[in-house]
Amino acid sequence: MNKWGLIISLTIIAAGLLYLFIKSIRGRDVERRFIFLFMGLAVAVPILFNISFSEKATPIVKAAFDKIENLPPGSKILISFDYDPAMAPEVNPMTDAFVRHAMAKGHRVYFMNLWATGQPMVATAIDRIIKTEFPEKKNGVDYVNLGYKAGGTGVLNVIITDIRKMYLTDVNGINLDSLPIMNGIRSLRDMDLLISVGGGLPGVKEWVLFAGDPGHIPVVGGCAAVSAPLLYPYYPNQLMGLLGGIKGAAEYESELKRKYPRFAETPQPGIKMMGPQTMAHLVIMAFIIFGNISYFVLKSRGE
């Protein structure tokens, strides 16, 4: 059933694109609503029929993975969820993968947010990943959720020298000094690795400029695909590794699965979303071709 459904759907998309191709040859522009319709189909069909592809980590993703992998167990890793629900479908797979990796490796994880609307996503990640997959890990010992503070880069400017100037308690109102995980932690400089996931401002770039660089602390990033080109200049000197968009997340997931067979059965949203992304890219390419065909047809007619 699935197979036939897929074949019928792909046939409909192909027939529609063929129709638009013929229209382009006649020098007619494709209306905006048709573009939207085909994009919708291109994304929906792979989701409905579960089309996915295998991935292999590129060097920039592998570098991020190796950085966490090579830290000795018990290292202090701060993960900042610098995004809102809008961006979550694209970057949540990255935070999931980072949290799984850090926990599996036995690191201590400190969560925080520079985006107000990102705070509930930390709580969910803790519930969904740590509490279910790593029930032996204890809040306040193996991980802590510091929560959100307003001020964006201003927060970084302060916690680079003194975390307690901004955070006196964790999100549950527990005094930081009473948490074993905070022993010996005075500022960001005491962290072994900073991970920022987010595509806006403040985001990865701000963590590099206001924390990683001045504090000489390694930074690994994850961001929406659209922001990735902006961050390439920082790799590999100021940014140890970078996950760009769904593809970056899918590559990290595949690397995690390869290194830790225990994750073979856990959800891999990044890999799953590569199907829709591939189809969407193909449809965009088809429309670019149609646009050029109609442009040259009109040009040859002198219109």
């Binding site: 994009m39 961006m87 694209e90 670019i288 149609f290």
Partner: peptide
């Protein structure tokens, strides 16, 4: 929020259609 962000996929397609022409 996700819906608004997802609009980007549609707008990227329509903007690419208009912008990427071998002029």
């Amino acid at each position: 929020g996700s819906t608004m962000y997802a609009l980007l996929a549609f707008y990227v397609a329509s903007a690419s259609y208009r912008a990427f022409r071998a002029k």
